[in-house]
Amino acid sequence: MGHLVYGPDAHSYTIDDRTIAHLKAAVFSKLRRGETFTLTLGSSVTGRGRETIWITQSIPLRFVSDEDAPVMLNRQWVEDLVAAANTNSGMRIVAEPVLALAS
């Protein structure tokens, strides 16, 4: 399991390594463009109801993975996360889309 460590108080959210790798790619994609957005985390991450955090370059943010090996990214999943960040409800963790195999 990985961790999203957020804010000056270093609040930590536990998220599985595969998801955190995709979340990191999507968040960095937005921040590289100077775009701020909200990230809503559900009860499976917070341990209680929903929690929404503001993602901006001025707030400390770390992604920690327990796995040493890099994760092969599902490009569609990263794009889905970025697309969600561009909506009024902001980014939220969505299920990984199943990739169609080429014949």
Rank of each mutant, 00 (worst) to 15 (best):
A69D: 13
M72R: 15
R62Y: 11
T36Q: 12
R50S: 11
H22F: 01
D66K: 09
S65E: 08
G47D: 10
Q57I: 01
A25G: 06
I53N: 03
G34M: 07
S65Q: 12
F63N: 04
P60S: 13
Q57G: 12
S29H: 15
R62C: 06
D66G: 13
H22G: 02
A25L: 08
K30I: 06
R33W: 01
T38I: 04
T36K: 14
L73K: 09
A26D: 03
T36N: 12
E67N: 09
L23I: 07
T40D: 00
P60A: 12
F37H: 07
L31C: 11
W54C: 05
V27M: 05
G49M: 00
H22K: 01
T52Q: 12
F37L: 05
G49A: 07
D66T: 09
T56E: 14
S65A: 13
V71E: 13
T36Y: 01
P70F: 05
L73I: 11
A26I: 05
L23Y: 02
A25V: 07
A25C: 06
T46N: 07
L41D: 03
A25D: 05
R62D: 11
S29A: 15
T56D: 14
I55D: 03
G34Y: 09
V27S: 02
H22E: 02
F28I: 11
G49P: 02
E67R: 10
S44Q: 12
T36M: 09
L41E: 02
D66W: 00
A69F: 00
M72V: 15
S43D: 11
A26P: 06
D68H: 14
R62M: 10
V64N: 08
V27K: 04
A69G: 00
I55H: 03
E67Q: 11
A26S: 09
F37Q: 03
R50E: 12
F28M: 15
E35T: 14
S29R: 15
S43L: 01
R33K: 14
K24W: 02
K30T: 07
I59F: 03
F63P: 05
R32E: 14
I55F: 02
S29E: 15
E51V: 13
R48V: 12
V45T: 14
A21L: 03
A21H: 04
P60C: 12
A26K: 04
R50T: 05
V71W: 03
E51F: 12
G42L: 11
I59E: 11
R62P: 00
L73H: 09
T38V: 04
R33Q: 15
T56Q: 13
F63I: 03
H22A: 01
K30H: 10
